[in-house]
Nucleic acid binder design. Structure first.
Length: 477
RNA sequence: GGUGGAGUGGCCGAGAGGCGAGGCUCGGGACUGCAAAUCCCGCUACACGGGUUCAAAUCCCGUCUCCACCUCCA
């Protein structure tokens, strides 16, 4: 995978034992995740599936930020601000959005992390981490009794993001809220004094307060992953300042590079602009579903683009993705008429696609290969079936899913048989009328019998070697 | 202003010196009473201006445009 720190491809490997330790920055649960956020969470899922494919075990920790993430004005915690807007308890809000976050992940077939520690429940380990930074001389108390990180003390500050400490200009927003409390403008708060804040605050040796945004990831990643992170995942916008600061906080404590490989997912644009509240183009997964799309159409769209390219999503591209996965599912059902055949040719396709995925998660190329399998004239149905079955868990697109069985609305059954009767009597005026009535009930009728023959005849010519019962089964379909 | 990335047909997108990916849409055809679906065929593109080369979407120089990051962000 492409490592942000060394700016080149690096192998993923477990440092201790055989389990790859992964940390992925999770959501701040003050609002619904939009599909852009979900793109990053999909990245960690794809990495895990690729690791499983390659025979590795992995342990994934993803934090839930329910405290300490300051909002735009740097005056109020994001959760508390939302709590004020919704006039509800801040933790109740956090729990609600957290549950909705999990719902969204499930809809996208993003397999759950092994653990989702909440920042608010990890305060002691953050305090312990800050304590160590004090002992090592990286932390100091400001005039406002907050605790700050001494950025100049950390020699390689800026290596991850490409910023240089002396080039970072004092930010006016920081100056606004933190006055002269910090020794240096690039320093940041590890622990913030409560001030006049009365909710979501904790008692500490340095007084009552709440954690800075970055400390949770340092403390929680090292705690839950036993002191070392093999792979750290997050959105590209977290590269600076969040991950730069996290690295500065973590490395002194571990006495080493705390993270072996920094993986960043690029941003999602929607119809040409970065998805954001201010651009007014925020799309939630439920918006996609409200338009009748399978949520996995989004997963498909994401996989059609390399994770480290900006990608532009649009309703048209979601529709295109949807029609491809629908066709693939239908094709698979056809291929299932014959037994699967894991031949040498099929295996070499599978190996090729594994290779695409293992090479810096080249899912676009892997999907191209899947299309080639679909269209191939040299692969048999049984081989295609074997390939689909072997790769389904790698892609997570539910390609083996049969068309949904749904209850027909009341009266539909009668209309369908009446229509069949009318058609057999060549009373097409009547049969079309009945079709319209069915359409009004939401039932779409397709007359498929003759249609299948066209492609079937072609397939039979190719499949002449199959046992007779398999052919018969296919004809019956 | 600084840094990074990108401009490919109606749309989305791969390719990174030499046989014009693929998908979606659209058009034509086969099939069908019709429709839908499916299958077949078609739509010949690489921002602009120079240059290098036998050969450039691909390399070089310049220009334009867009996007992102530069202390809210996935």
């Amino acid at each position: 995978m492409y490592d942000t720190l060394t700016r080149q491809l690096q192998p993923i490997k477990p440092r201790n034992g055989k389990v790859v330790h992964i940390y992925c920055c999770g959501p701040t649960v003050y609002r619904d995740a939009h599909v852009g956020n979900l793109r990053t969470f999909l990245l960690s899922d794809l990495v895990r599936r690729a690791l499983t494919m390659s025979g590795f075990e992995s342990l994934l920790i993803q934090n839930i930020t329910d405290v300490g993430h300051m909002s735009e004005d740097f005056e109020e915690d994001k959760i508390l601000a939302q709590s004020r807007r919704e006039k509800r308890d801040p933790f109740a809000i956090a729990r609600d959005y957290e549950a909705r976050f999990h719902d969204d992940l499930a809809l996208l077939n993003i397999s759950p992390a092994d653990s989702y520690p909440r920042a608010s429940e990890c305060i002691p380990m953050m305090l312990g981490h800050i304590e160590k930074l004090f002992e090592l001389g990286y932390a100091y108390r400001g005039d406002d009794t907050s605790v700050y990180f001494d950025s100049q003390k950390f020699n390689s500050y800026g290596e991850l993001s490409g910023n240089r400490l002396d080039a970072l200009k004092p930010g006016h927003r920081y100056e606004f809220t933190e006055g002269g409390a910090k020794r240096f403008h690039a320093d940041w708060a590890l622990w913030k004094a409560a001030g006049n804040r009365s909710e979501m605050i904790w008692d500490t040796p340095w007084g009552r307060g709440f954690p800075g945004w970055h400390i949770e990831c340092s403390a929680m990643s090292l705690h839950y992953l036993n002191g070392h992170v093999d792979l750290h995942i997050g959105g590209i916008d977290l590269r600076f300042p969040h991950h730069e600061n996290e690295r500065a906080q973590s490395n002194p404590v571990t006495g080493d590079e705390a993270v072996d490989l920094w993986l960043h997912g690029e941003h999602l644009l929607f119809e040409g602009r970065k998805m954001s509240k201010s651009a007014g183009n925020v799309v939630l997964l439920r918006d996609v579903m409200a338009r009748g799309f399978d949520p996995l159409a989004i997963r498909f769209c994401f996989m059609e683009n390399r994770y480290r390219s900006q990608m532009d999503l649009s309703w048209a591209s979601i529709a295109a993705g949807q029609s491809v996965i629908r066709r693939w599912r239908e094709k698979y059902q056809e291929w299932c008429a014959v037994p699967q055949e894991l031949t040498v040719a099929a295996q070499s396709e599978i190996v090729k696609i594994h290779g695409n995925v293992a090479e810096d998660l080249d899912t676009p190329r892997a999907l191209i290969a899947l299309r080639e399998v679909e269209k191939s004239n040299s692969l048999s149905f049984g081989e295609k079936r074997a390939i689909w079955e072997s790769l389904d868990s790698l892609f997570g697109l539910d390609l083996l899913k049969p068309p949904q069985e749904v209850e027909l609305p009341a009266g539909a059954e009668e209309l369908i048989s009446a229509r069949a009767r009318a058609r057999s009597e060549k009373n097409f005026i009547e049969s079309d009328k009945l079709r319209d009535q069915l359409a009004a009930l939401g039932v779409q009728v397709r007359d498929t019998r003759v249609v299948r023959m066209g492609s079937l005849q072609l397939s039979l010519r190719q499949r002449i070697g199959y046992p007779f019962h398999a052919l018969l089964q296919f004809l019956v379909r």
